[in-house]
Amino acid sequence: MKTSEGHHRALPTVLGKAMRLAATVVFTIFGLLVVTFLIGRVVPVDPVLAVVGDRASQSTYDKVFVELGLDKPLYVQFSLYVEKAVTGDFGESFLTKKPIIDDIARAFPATLELATVGIIIGTLFGVPVGVWAAVRQGKLVDQVVRILGLVGYSAPIFWLGLLGLLVFYAKWGLVAGPGRIDISYEYAFTPKTGLFLLDTAMQGQWGAFRNVVSHIALPAALLGYYSMAYIARMTRSFMLNELAQEYVVTARVKGVAEWRIIWVHALRNAAVPLVTVIALSYAGLLEGSVLTETVFAWPGLGQYLTNSLQNADMNAVLGGTLLIGIIFVGLNLLSDFLYTLLDPRVRRRT
């Protein structure tokens, strides 16, 4: 009886929660649209000139001016902008003469693949290292981790990237050089998802797969190292906090083995705030690490945006900005969701 009563009460709260969530998301993205639209109008780049070039006649200029809808009032322009954005139409790139959405669909998977491998490396190493440092607080391990973290924090990524290329590629030939794949393998498979690791593996092109791995290893390890430095530091401080709690004493009193206290009791609690940390560093990597992508000639979002920015290709810049904003909102939602999964105290609260 009691449980059915509970369900009746739970249902509307779940629904209300979902609706509130949807409203937040819509509102955030709307705000994002306003910002990108206004930036597009405020920057001192004449969109008509960007299309017609500076030697066009006045009549051509006027014609394009009307074509772009710039004669209409601002709110009409904005509603047109939103209408198009919703259908995925961000206009054409002046530079590539292709729709922005196609350009991004080509550049984004490269960044997605690199960032995903990077964050996996960062988490896989960062969490255990952070736990280890917390358990041996003040000991040698802790100091070594601190120094490694400090280097990860302060050494410029392009410097480490170039150094990595020099040592591992030029000197020892352990990994492949810049780019995502060697030209000889480029036509060995069809890029369906744009994630080369996945594409080559699914099509059984193991030679190409190995080549892709060899290309991604160094930049991903580099991004992994940077996120590891941050994740390890945060893990350490969350774990120190948890290990000082009374429930840890309770577990000891019960006779629970030390490894289980650390990896099950304490880490399970530390995981709650850690999820947000990892999600946000992932979002940071997805923005496209401009420097890494430049050093490694990685045809990703960061490179695309920098290129567009340098050429005053506003449509491309704004489309990319919007995409990054949406990724941030999405990852925040995901981490909120995981948060409620991991922490029962948040779960039942409305």
Binding site: E246, Y247, V249, T250, V253, K254, G255, V256, N269, P344
Partner: peptide
């Protein structure tokens, strides 16, 4: 030794602490 402690704690001697709000693991 750590092993002796583990066989004593819980099995032969245990302790009830002050505040269940802090002494119970919140996520289990």
């Amino acid at each position: 030794t750590a092993k002796q402690w583990r066989s004593l704690r819980g099995a032969r001697m245990s302790m009830v602490m002050q505040d269940p709000k802090f002494s119970l693991n919140p996520v289990m």
